[in-house]
């Protein structure tokens, strides 16, 4: 039964990683990366690694999307005025 959770989590991680790469717009990619962070944390819990799941939650869930969006906002603010 424990393997079922691991297989489901693995397929979800593979799916969200593929989506995170195929989405070309950085803002939409930040959204998918947030979901990827949560799904990775679930996979790490299924593989009995709670410490790694905790750090993935904190980093992948809130920190990386925030950094990506701030970078997009800074780049868009510069390019917005040139046109």
């Amino acid at each position: 039964m424990a393997d079922a959770v691991i297989v489901v989590a693995l397929l979800l991680v593979a799916g969200s990683a593929t989506v995170a790469v195929l989405v070309r717009d950085p803002v939409r990619q930040a959204l998918v990366l947030a979901v990827l962070g949560v799904v990775l944390a679930v996979l790490f819990t299924a593989v009995q690694a709670p410490d790694v799941a905790l750090s993935q939650l904190a980093v992948g869930g809130a920190l990386t999307p925030l950094l990506l969006l701030l970078a997009v906002r800074k780049v868009k603010r510069r390019k917005g005025r040139e046109r």
Binding site: P50, A62, L69
Partner: peptide, 29 residues
């Protein structure tokens, strides 16, 4: 299911930081 009460800390941190992630998107988008 794993009979490990220590894993509930994970759910606690996710319940805290999940909405923060969404607030980030709401604020910046």
């Amino acid at each position: 299911g794993y009979d490990r009460p220590a894993y509930v800390d994970l759910a606690l941190v996710l319940a805290l930081l999940g909405p923060v992630g969404t607030l980030v998107f709401a604020r910046l988008l």
